[in-house]
Amino acid sequence: MAEAFKTLFSPGHTACAGCGQAIAARLVVDTAGANTIIANNTGCLEVFSAKYPETAWGVPWIHSLFENAAAVASGIEAALKYLGLKDKINIIAQAGDGGTADIGLQALSGMWERGHDILYVCYDNEAYMNTGVQRSGLTPFEANTSTSPIGKILATGNLRPKKPMPEIAFAHGIPYVATASVGYPQDIQRKVKKALAIKGPKYIQIHVSCPLGWRHAPNLTLDVSKLAVETGLYPLIEYENGKLTQVRKLTKVKPVEEYLKSQGRFKHILNSPDAIKLIQAIADSNIEKYGLIEKKA
């Protein structure tokens, strides 16, 4: 019966209904295929995929700490190299945004700097979801989280913009850096395939909506994630060998309100034109910086 499901990430995991991270994680492992070893930081994905004594994974998979998947994967890569097996096996290290941009950044920087042949995937749901929606370095400006709550006097959410992780990866001089979104499943498959064909350290950051933390209906996960791209708030880009090589162009740019009003975490600013203006400015600057609109000749 089990064989009916042709996936390396099986049903029976315990993610919330409609979890974007569950969708993206399956796309990643199924694109990588059976000859893959995964190291996973602590976080929702680790918890909902490996409720001991059960596991959803159909490939070798290891969890140890919140911050060290990149270090564990580095060790696995070194061992496989020693055994002469590295070319036959993909190694993936993966984590949430907190595990990546905050506590795991040191291990990840080491993995990049030492040049390990590993694909690192960050599932960016923009907060520490597993422990109750605390803000992380990748929480966007103004999002309401349990540690950036809306004050009675200062009615603002998270006061800081997102940490520029793709650029931090890029600055390490690694051969491949990309952003992706669960709203574009085939694009995730393409980028994972491309990354795994490149030797050296690779970084893919996938925007994955979290119905619980972002506060939207579970059937809107893909639509909400798509809106982040269509407004310019989450540009889909690729850096290869030190150059920006591809961006997903926007044919019609949607105003940021469309994205903001789709989720409860931004509810407090919907009547605040000043706050919306600031967020529109973030989108506009992304559009300018990455050339998201085709320039007419």
Binding site: P11, H13, A17, G18, I23, R26, Q186, P218
Partner: peptide
């Protein structure tokens, strides 16, 4: 099949797709 968070949809040709209610959480995606 590609986007079901549970991975519980199966199917090969057109009009053969279905899901396994033993696992489907009813997210509606």
């Amino acid at each position: 099949l590609l986007i079901c968070p549970e991975g519980c949809i199966t199917g090969e040709a057109k009009n053969t797709y279905n899901c396994d209610y033993l696992y489907c959480k009813g997210c509606g995606e």
